[in-house]
Computed example of a mutant assay.
Amino acid sequence: MSQLPVPGRDTVYVWIGGDAGGRPAAAGRPLRRAAAALLGRPDAEFVVGHRPGGGPLVRFASDVDAAPGPAEVPASVSRTGGIIVVAVRAGGPVGVDVERCRPLPALGLAGRWYDPAEAAWLAGRPPSGRERDFLRLWTAKEAVGKALGVGLRDGGLRRRVPVPDGAGPLLRPVPGSPAVRVGHPCTGGDLVLAVAVAGTAGPVEVVVEETVGRDGQVVEAVQRAGHGVAAVRSASVDRTSLPVVVRGS
Rank of each mutant, 00 (worst) to 15 (best):
residue 210 E to R: 09
residue 88 V to C: 04
residue 150 V to L: 08
residue 53 G to N: 15
residue 217 Q to C: 03
residue 2 S to P: 15
residue 21 G to D: 13
residue 169 P to A: 15
residue 68 P to R: 03
residue 227 H to G: 11
residue 105 P to F: 10
residue 146 K to G: 05
residue 73 V to H: 12
residue 171 L to F: 02
residue 65 D to W: 03
residue 214 R to H: 07
residue 48 V to Q: 13
residue 42 P to Y: 08
residue 86 V to D: 08
residue 37 A to M: 11
residue 87 A to V: 02
residue 103 P to G: 10
residue 222 V to N: 07
residue 236 S to I: 14
residue 216 G to S: 03
residue 81 G to V: 02
residue 17 G to Y: 01
residue 138 W to E: 11
residue 65 D to F: 00
residue 73 V to P: 03
residue 188 G to I: 05
residue 147 A to K: 03
residue 26 A to E: 14
residue 3 Q to C: 13
residue 44 A to S: 15
residue 88 V to P: 01
residue 132 R to T: 15
residue 101 C to V: 14
residue 188 G to Y: 03
residue 217 Q to G: 01
residue 10 D to R: 05
residue 109 L to Q: 05
residue 48 V to L: 12
residue 68 P to T: 04
residue 120 A to K: 07
residue 248 G to P: 08
residue 237 V to I: 10
residue 162 P to W: 05
residue 238 D to H: 14
residue 152 L to D: 02
residue 33 R to L: 14
residue 112 R to Y: 08
residue 94 V to T: 00
residue 9 R to N: 00
residue 70 P to T: 10
residue 122 L to S: 06
residue 107 L to N: 12
residue 206 V to S: 08
residue 216 G to T: 05
residue 26 A to Y: 09
residue 79 R to H: 15
residue 88 V to E: 02
residue 205 E to F: 00
residue 17 G to W: 01
residue 235 A to I: 00
residue 194 A to Q: 11
residue 233 R to D: 06
residue 166 G to F: 15
residue 142 E to K: 05
residue 36 A to N: 05
residue 135 L to W: 06
residue 69 G to Y: 10
residue 179 A to S: 14
residue 82 G to L: 02
residue 13 Y to P: 00
residue 123 A to F: 02
residue 200 T to R: 03
residue 182 V to R: 07
residue 8 G to I: 03
residue 193 L to V: 12
residue 140 A to T: 02
residue 70 P to R: 09
residue 151 G to C: 03
residue 163 V to I: 11
residue 209 E to Y: 04
residue 223 Q to G: 12
residue 235 A to Q: 12
residue 62 S to I: 04
residue 85 V to A: 10
residue 28 G to A: 14
residue 151 G to F: 05
residue 164 P to F: 04
residue 191 L to M: 07
residue 206 V to H: 06
residue 195 V to I: 10
residue 21 G to L: 14
residue 231 A to I: 15
residue 221 A to V: 12
residue 222 V to M: 09
residue 112 R to T: 10
residue 22 G to V: 11
residue 195 V to S: 09
residue 162 P to H: 05
residue 223 Q to I: 07
residue 205 E to K: 01
residue 192 V to W: 03
residue 161 V to H: 00
residue 210 E to C: 11
residue 170 L to M: 13
residue 72 E to A: 13
residue 116 P to A: 10
residue 149 G to C: 09
residue 199 G to Y: 03
residue 28 G to C: 09
residue 140 A to N: 08
residue 40 G to L: 12
residue 115 D to R: 13
residue 48 V to R: 12
residue 247 R to P: 04
residue 195 V to K: 04
residue 23 R to I: 07
residue 160 R to K: 08
residue 164 P to V: 13
residue 38 L to M: 04
residue 136 R to P: 00
residue 151 G to K: 00
residue 174 V to C: 07
residue 136 R to I: 06
residue 69 G to C: 06
residue 143 A to Y: 02
residue 236 S to P: 10
